[in-house]
Design a protein around this nucleic acid. Structure first.
Ligand SMILES: NC(=O)c1ccc[n+]([C@@H]2O[C@H](COP(=O)([O-])OP(=O)(O)OC[C@H]3O[C@@H](n4cnc5c(N)ncnc54)[C@H](O)[C@@H]3O)[C@@H](O)[C@H]2O)c1
Ligand SMILES: NC(=O)c1ccc[n+]([C@@H]2O[C@H](COP(=O)([O-])OP(=O)(O)OC[C@H]3O[C@@H](n4cnc5c(N)ncnc54)[C@H](O)[C@@H]3O)[C@@H](O)[C@H]2O)c1
Lengths: 234, 234
DNA sequence: ATGCACTCGTGCATACATTCACAAAGCGGG
DNA sequence: CCCGCTTTGTGAATGTATGCACGAGTGCAT
């Protein structure tokens, strides 16, 4: 094997693991709130609804932070997962589209709590501009670049109608955003190096429909696990 | 080769493919609307943002519906994918939790259009009961079983606060629902044979944070694709 | 001190998913 | 009717993820 420098190169964490780390994190934070100080891979696996070996392997990508015979120290794991996910500081987000969904998102306090404060909401419709949602005033989309720069926004949320989603994404990218969470049922085209994740409710329902229909057809079956290997496409 | 009965045994479609079929379907419907009659795996791949070989393999699980040298007939593919996904009839859904999100969902017309009409919205809070959202009157959660039975609902949506989500899921299951779409940031525990998919926005943002942070740390990287292999856990 | 019970970390086997690469099949032009 | 062009369908190779099984630490009781 090649000589390896002490300053270890940050290991690439498998996509499938990246998807599960936030789930472990949420559970661990809940446990910490309940004054649980130590947890075993078995215990965490139970709460996360996965296999214990998978938990151990996932956590092993962060480093050897467990204690054999004992388990993992909850507070320490929380810290390590936060660090690995880049959650040591806030990531302000900007929401494009102040409609039904955009308003629900902006008004939802859960994001700010988890380190994703809403830095701004923009819309193309002058009629929407100026109204206040969740303590944030809706601004015109022309102000997008200004918001992104002044608030150092890296993450944008697309909540426009499907037909406007690509336009919204283009504007976000030219404003300097490098990660996009897309709610519009549209495949966004973005330059290499920009991460995109999508949330498509109709797709989710259709997937459920498949398993539902299958169950009806052939005896029972179902099963399968929710998020194996979702990354963030670029 | 073995003799094969005409009434072919339904092949199991890989989870990763099941996740992509709805995306192909949406694109194909759009193409049909634009009077496109034929499409190649290359063309569909382009629009779906995936590899052409993947498209062909995915479609091959449905059967040999392409024409070599030509491509796939759009209308026929639409029909076949719909059939395979169980979208030949409507799947009424019931929404539990008439808060911020539940209201946005109920008011959103996109579901009904795609074959998932809202059969009912229920809430535990008497104050919410009786109000009308998107043409549906909010009813008390005690009426859940009645709605599920009378409207033959198989799919339930959980849009309650996290602390109430397991209760909501339990009630859905006892009412007879066998598929659940969960918006609460909680791992639901359900009996074997019940499908669950979750939509967790905080998790999505945290995943983006990881890749974002990584980009800052080591040169560039990013990439990865959105939904490899999401199934529906039971 | 020694042994025992427990739990991590990980090599390895297996399963699943992606991609390549090419023969087979269909189409159209001459 | 045949030839050349196109595009499918799929074996095989590669890449990724899962889960088992067990060695190796750790803590505690005796
Ligand atoms: N509302 C839901 O529950 C729900 C559910 C699933 C998916 N979605 C999807 O989310 C997206 C938004 O849904 P909605 O219900 O909020 O729609 P909406 O029509 O209520 O709101 C869309 C908003 O985007 C604005 N907009 C339009 N073009 C724009 C542009 N180029 N730049 C900036 N803003 C622009 C509009 O002015 C409007 O305010 C849609 O793509 C929809 O399919 C919504
Ligand atoms: N609003 C958003 O944009 C958003 C975004 C991401 C996640 N979420 C998640 O979605 C869920 C709902 O969010 P929200 O903003 O609509 O919350 P909300 O508080 O506005 O609404 C929750 C509703 O559920 C009802 N409820 C409570 N317990 C119930 C029970 N046992 N059975 C039936 N109904 C019950 C409440 O009366 C209330 O009407 C939460 O888990 C939240 O974390 C919401």
């Amino acid at each position: 094997m090649e000589f390896m420098p002490v300053e270890r190169v940050r290991r690439r964490i498998p996509d499938a693991t990246v998807v599960r780390l936030p789930i472990y994190l949420r559970i661990l934070v809940e446990q910490a709130d309940e004054k649980v100080e130590w947890i075993s891979s078995e215990g965490l696996a139970e709460l996360a609804g996965v296999n214990a070996a998978k938990v151990r392997k996932d956590l092993s990508y962060l480093g050897s932070y467990g204690t054999r015979g004992v388990g993992y120290e909850v507070a320490f794991l929380v810290y390590q997962i936060r660090r690995e996910l880049g959650l040591t500081h806030d990531w302000p987000v900007v929401i494009v589209g102040a409609g039904n969904l955009g308003q629900a998102l902006a008004g939802y306090g859960g994001f700010g709590e988890r380190g994703f404060p809403v830095a701004g909401v923009v819309d193309i419709e002058p009629a929407k501009v100026g109204s206040v949602i969740g303590g944030v005033r809706v601004r015109h989309i022309e102000d997008l670049a200004q918001i992104v720069h002044s608030r150092r926004v890296h993450i944008g949320v697309v909540a426009t109608p499907p037909g406007a989603a690509q336009d919204a994404a283009d504007r976000l990218v030219s404003a300097g955003v490098t990660s996009i969470l897309n709610f519009a049922p549209v495949v966004l085209v973005v330059p290499r190096g920009i991460s995109v994740r999508k949330v498509d409710l109709a797709v989710e329902l259709q997937i459920l429909s498949y398993y539902e229909q299958r169950r009806a057809g052939v005896g029972l079956h179902a099963v399968t696990s929710n998020d194996a290997g979702r990354g963030a496409s670029a």
